[in-house]
């Protein structure tokens, strides 16, 4: 089985790297999601078109291949390269940010038109309207789908092991090569990912309760400690942000 030395030398740092990749790429994808998602509601067609193109390209792209490309093709083309950790983070952030932009766009579009009109009547600027009226009301609606996306991102962080970032999957593979004993290692890995997903879900639930209380609503009733089940409409929206279809 695993020796203590190996555990402290590779596995613990691996967990830490996984968390780092997760946090950095989550921040990057949140940024991308809000910027691109908002731009996709712009009144200028060229802005909508460019943001929409970004979305379509990254939604059609496989994150793993993009990561490979960033790690191996870009250095040869440009003559300089990223630290592997950053090419992985960048690839994950840009891809999952594109998925998130669809969530932001959908939630902004779901804010009742009367709210926007009230803002216009009060002669708010566009930016004020977005910041003071539309985003605060759209935000609680975004959290459950963002939770799902965050879990997908957590699962996606395992991909960085393929471009030689020493995350926990990488440590697991190393251990398999060293000890030739795979069952306990991969079981432990799966359980670790599951625990991380569990913690994230709990945190996002807390955030949702808070955000919904902020606009005077009770959170949707959910059963189970972990299950991130969505309502039927939420489910089809979830499917379309991750897959390739539109919202029709």
């Amino acid at each position: 089985m695993m020796t203590w030395d190996f555990f402290t030398e590779w596995f613990l740092p691996g967990i830490w790297i996984t968390i780092q990749v997760l946090v950095y790429s989550a921040l990057l994808s949140a940024l991308v999601a809000f910027v691109v998602g908002t731009l996709r509601t712009s009144r200028f067609w060229i802005v909508r078109f460019l943001a929409g193109t970004y979305f379509e390209i990254f939604r059609g792209m496989s994150a793993l291949i993009f990561m490979f490309w960033m790690a191996f093709a870009v250095p040869l083309m440009l003559g300089w390269q990223f630290v592997p950790l950053w090419s992985g983070t960048l690839a994950l952030g840009l891809t999952y940010g594109a998925y998130g932009s669809e969530i932001v766009r959908g939630a902004l579009a779901a804010v009742p038109a009367a709210q926007r009109e009230a803002g216009i009547a009060l002669s708010f600027t566009r930016w004020q309207r977005l910041r003071r009226i539309e985003l605060p009301q759209a935000w609680p609606e975004m959290i459950p789908p963002f939770n799902n996306l965050l879990i997908e991102l957590l699962k996606g962080t395992s991909l960085v092991s393929v471009i030689a970032v020493a995350d926990m999957t990488f440590a697991g593979n190393l251990l398999r090569l060293a000890k030739n004993e795979s069952a306990p290692i991969y079981t432990l890995l799966l359980v670790l990912y599951f625990i991380l997903a569990f913690i994230l879900t709990r945190l996002m639930r807390m955030l949702e309760r808070r955000a919904k209380a902020g606009v005077g609503r009770a959170p949707e009733k959910k059963n189970g400690l972990l299950s991130r089940k969505l309502s039927p409409s939420g489910e089809s929206m979830q499917a379309s942000t991750q897959g390739a279809g539109g919202l029709g």
Partner: peptide
Amino acid sequence: VTAVTEFIRNTPLLVQLFFLFYVVPQ
């Protein structure tokens, strides 16, 4: 069934593939 599907859904496909490829044949 709920427990198993939730577990599979919340863990990375990549690690599941390693599991299927290296552990299951044992």
